[in-house]
């Protein structure tokens, strides 16, 4: 055993304490938001939603749970913000049972913000539940639910989360009389994905049967493994972890147009605010790797002598 580990338990606890101090320290110090540079895959994600026309349907699948909340909930909130701002028809569902509470909360919160921007009387009132947005809910089966959706959305969810009959909802009817029936009828599907079931299953079981563009926000753990799908064009936009969510928030905040709506909601900062803590903790890990390797090579040389 190398000489560096005289008391491994003490060293371990010191490292834990150091990490805690660094993360809490960056939270307490008034460091401000660091400047953001947007990576191409995040820009593509933003552009994919921005390319949709008002009235277009978008399917958003909340495939994450509270364990991935800091990485994916900011992305989910920002996506809903952009979707409502574009006046899209927002169809949502969830594949992870413990994430349903987060999904329901995010959808209603962003719908409420959207209501502050758009007229609320008559036919133009936006967004109305059942007509402009709907939360279909959750079912067991994981990837089987995606397979079911390719054969018919209304049949997959006979009733939406609040209990209304899905078939009769006006949200499926487009302005040109076209009706949304399957995944292939969506100009964009987005999955906020923490693992399995998630983007891999949407690609394999969704795009494996129907042709539709798909974008995704994933945790940083899974983002390198999704790059082959992004480079092949199977994914048209990719937000990688909290960094990707921060870039997306930055793009949305920057593109707010106060003149258009007269009301500007609070800026999205949940992920942006975490960039300092993320940077500091990364530097700590790099420092620990460097120090431990220096100690290792030093002890190796001493041992040879």
């Amino acid at each position: 055993m190398p000489a560096i580990s005289q008391d491994p338990l003490l060293i371990r606890r010191l490292i834990f304490l150091l990490l805690a101090v660094i993360v809490v320290g960056t939270l307490l110090l008034p460091l401000g938001t660091p400047p953001m540079v947007v990576n191409q895959e995040s820009q593509d994600f933003y552009d994919a939603v921005a390319a949709l026309k008002p009235g277009d349907p978008i399917l958003i699948s909340f495939d994450f749970d509270p364990a991935s909340k800091p990485e994916l909930e900011p992305a989910a909130r920002a996506l809903l913000r952009q979707a409502f701002r574009r006046r899209l028809r927002v169809v949502t569902l969830g594949l992870w049972q413990t994430g349903i509470g987060l999904a329901a909360e995010a959808i209603e919160a962003e719908a409420e913000i959207a209501r502050s921007r758009f007229p609320q009387e008559g036919e133009n009132a936006y967004p109305q539940y059942g007509k402009d947005y709907v939360f279909l809910g959750w079912q067991p089966g994981q990837f089987a639910l995606i397979v079911r959706l390719t054969e018919g959305i209304q049949g997959a969810f006979p009733r939406e989360f609040r209990g209304a009959e899905t078939e009769r909802l006006p949200i499926w009817n487009g302005s040109n009389g076209e009706k949304v029936r399957t995944l292939g009828d969506f100009p964009l599907v987005v999955t906020i994905s923490a693992g399995n079931p998630g983007i891999d299953e949407w690609i394999r079981y969704g795009r494996g049967k129907e042709d539709f563009p798909i974008a995704t926000a994933v945790t940083a753990v899974t983002s390198p493994g999704r790059m082959p799908f992004y480079k092949s064009g199977q994914i048209i936009g990719l937000l990688a972890g909290m960094r990707g969510a921060a870039e997306y928030e930055y793009l949305l905040n920057r593109s707010e147009d106060p003149e258009k709506f007269g009301v500007t909601p609070p800026p999205l900062v949940a992920a942006l605010q975490g960039m300092n803590a993320l940077s500091a903790s990364h530097f700590l890990i790099i420092g620990l790797v460097v120090v431990s390797n220096i100690m290792y090579f030093t002890s190796q040389r001493r041992g040879r002598r």
């Binding site: 939270l27 990485e71 909290m242």
Partner: peptide
Amino acid sequence: AAFGSTTMARMSLLYGRAYALK
């Protein structure tokens, strides 16, 4: 690359909890 990204993910989760505790 996966380890570097995993570090980012785990630190993000820690930040989330630290923010809540704060």
